[in-house]
Amino acid sequence: MDSQKLETILDKHDRQPAALLAILQDIQEEENYLPKEDVQQVAKALSISLARVYSLATFFSSFSLEPRGKHICTVCMGTACHVRGAPKLVDHIRREFDVPETGTTKDLNLTLETVNCVGACALGPLLILDQEYHSNMTPAKLDRVLKPIKQD
């Protein structure tokens, strides 16, 4: 991230160590992941240990330390979505796109993530593709939804 931008984020939070979580969230929002240089810069700017920054970044599941794909596909694995067949969706996407354990395809086209509930449980299973919500998903319906990104 260019250093000007990072400075703006740090200033927005008054360089307070208490705002560490919020600072990392802002960085990830801009960069799609947490670049190593930025994490180091944050530790320095807040005068806290690099270990503390990394312990937070690895504790919370919403952070990624690796670059994420061009498209982000999030499958809800909350209870309501689980009992309506969400695991089958994940299996299907893994297979169709050859997604490795890390979640991101080699060509950086797609990142597959899971989340525990997005608050639309009545309509499960839920899938969010690039911030667009799709409800009552089935593996068969998936093909249609994912078609545009397959051709990318």
């Binding site: 694995m77 909350g78 209870t79 309501a80 689980h82 509930c117 608050g119 639309a120 449980c121």
Partner: peptide, 12 residues
Amino acid sequence: DEGDPGAFMDSA
């Protein structure tokens, strides 16, 4: 924080 996966009353 509504951590219970499958519940959304707080969000509503």
